[in-house]
Every structure is written in structure tokens, then in C-alpha cells.
Computed example of a mutant assay.
Amino acid sequence: MATWFITGASAGIGRAVAEQLLKAGHRVAATARDENRLEVLRRQGGELWTTTLDVTDTRAVRDVVGRAFADLGRIDVIFSNAGRGAVGAAEELSDEAIAEQIAVNLTGPIQLIRAALPHLRAQGGGRIIQTTTMGAQISSPGASLYHASKWGIEGFLESLVPEVAPFGIGVTMIEPGSVRTDFGAALSIADPLPAYAATPAGRLHRYIKAGGGNLTADAPGDPARVAAAIITAATTTPAPRRLTLGSDAHAAVQAALTGRQAELDKALAASTDFPS
């Protein structure tokens, strides 16, 4: 039996992971901004610990993580899953939307992990699993701040991996493609500027409006299968650094990496060195 701590457990991938863990007899500490939305997990039964948590409140993050370890003893997996998307051209986004996007997708997960690390070290190890997205490897117009937050958290985790490996702590980044969840319903959407109407950002606004908030109805990703892959990764040794999940994610990330490699010019790079 393992014990998982999950943020953003009330919907989407976080809820699917929590449901599968409880069904298999594991313990789950489930958190959400609105604890009432975790009632569906309570009805399922199993060993469940719940509380309200807004990951943008650093003091609350430290308090909740401390209480979870105190109440449950050992926690094997920290699954940092809470997140939100902000949509709009860089010029369209408000200062408040920018601050919120960075707080939810970047600063919040960083502070969650920092709060958990002393406990994981003290117990001799554990796993940190962070939901990023294929959007941490690719980018699209109209989602610049979303990508900035996701590329940022992966940069943080890349450095974290060798920092915490000596303590027996493994780190895995989850990069799903489009998954059939209600992610689109929670988007923060900027007010469109007429100047961008004929640009890719303007087309994205029209696509979202036409979808009526349900942007993943035809997504290839199955949340149950994504959840199962995440749970399996938690017991895979060594911890996989990245899990790219979904055929769309694989194709997009492969194209992005191939394109970036093609842009490397060894001769040009070497031309800026001091002469030997």
C-alpha cells in the first residue's frame, strides 16, 4: 500500500489518479481549491484524507503538507497536478492574468515541492510527480504565458532531479497531450484585441468560442489510461524523467525536438570562441 498526496484532485487527471489509487487499496491525501468537490472521492470509499488547498497560497501549502505528513506518516508520492490555462496574445493578457498563471503553474508547484522535500528526505526517499504538458516542449500562439509557466516548471525540475537523487527522491514530469477532461472549462481567457483578429491568436479565440468551453470532447487522450500510466511510473525504477502521453503529444514533441536540433550550427557556435 502506498500513500499519495495529490493537488487538483477534484477533476481531470488528478481525480482519475485518485480514483484508481483508492480502488486499488492505496491511501490518498486529496486536495482541491474547493474541498466540497472532493465529495465524489469520499463516496467511492477507501482511505481518503482531504482538505482545501489553493497552491498559490504558500503559507497554506506549507501548513497542509506538514499536516498531511503528520497525520499520515510516510507519504510515498507527491503528485503536483493542480494547474490552469491562460489564453490570449501576450499583449491581450492582463497583469492579473499573468500573475495568476505564473502563481498557479510555476510558483505554486515549486513551493509545494519545497515544502515536501524536508519530509521526503527525513523518511529516506519518495517520488515527486509533476503534471506539465506537451506544451512544455512545444508552443502555440495565443498561449505564451501558459507555455512560459510549463517550460519554467520543467526547467526547475531538470535542476531538481540531480539535487534530490542522493536522498532517494525520484522526479517525473508528465507531458500529456490533449486529454478528454474539463480542462477547457477552467481557462482564463483574455479580452481579444481587434488588431489580432486576423492572426493565429485571433483564430484561437474564435476556436475557443465555437467550442463553448468543451475543447477536449474529441481529444485522443483517455484520462483513465493516462492515470494508469502515471501510477505505474511511480513504481518504476529508476524514476522516468519524462512521460510523454498521447499520440498527439509524441508527434508534436518529436517534431519540436527535431526542429530545435536542426537549428544547432556547430561551426557558428565555435566561431565565437577565443582562437585556440
Rank of each mutant, 00 (worst) to 15 (best):
D95I: 02
S94H: 04
F167C: 01
P240Y: 08
S271Y: 04
A82N: 08
I230H: 03
A16R: 14
E263S: 12
G152V: 07
A228W: 14
A11L: 06
T237R: 10
R59W: 02
L72T: 07
A228C: 09
L268M: 07
G168Q: 11
L120G: 06
A249R: 01
H147F: 11
F69C: 03
P220F: 06
T58R: 14
L160K: 10
K209A: 15
S247H: 05
E100I: 06
A16Q: 12
T216R: 07
T258F: 01
A197T: 10
G152D: 09
V64L: 06
R43H: 12
R43V: 02
T132V: 05
A233Y: 06
T7I: 07
R74Y: 01
A89Q: 12
K209M: 06
A32Y: 10
R127M: 06
D273I: 01
I128S: 03
E100R: 13
A256Q: 08
S94K: 09
I6R: 05
G66Y: 05
K23R: 14
D76T: 14
T181E: 04
Q101D: 13
A11W: 04
Q261L: 15
T272H: 12
D57E: 14
A239I: 06
F167D: 04
L41C: 06
V87I: 15
E100M: 05
T7L: 10
G46C: 09
L268I: 05
E158M: 04
Y207W: 11
D265K: 11
F69I: 03
G14I: 07
G202A: 11
Y146L: 00
A116Y: 05
T131Q: 04
S80C: 14
D182Q: 11
Q137S: 03
A269P: 00
G85T: 15
R260N: 09
G88S: 09
A86V: 15
H147V: 01
A89P: 08
L264M: 07
A249I: 03
Q111L: 07
A115W: 11
G177Y: 03
G126Q: 09
L215M: 14
G124M: 14
G202E: 09
A97R: 02
E96Q: 14
L187Q: 10
G202N: 08
A97M: 15
G170H: 04
L106G: 01
A32S: 14
G45S: 09
R67I: 03
R260M: 09
G246P: 02
A60Q: 15
G108R: 11
G8S: 08
G108Q: 12
R42C: 07
L48R: 10
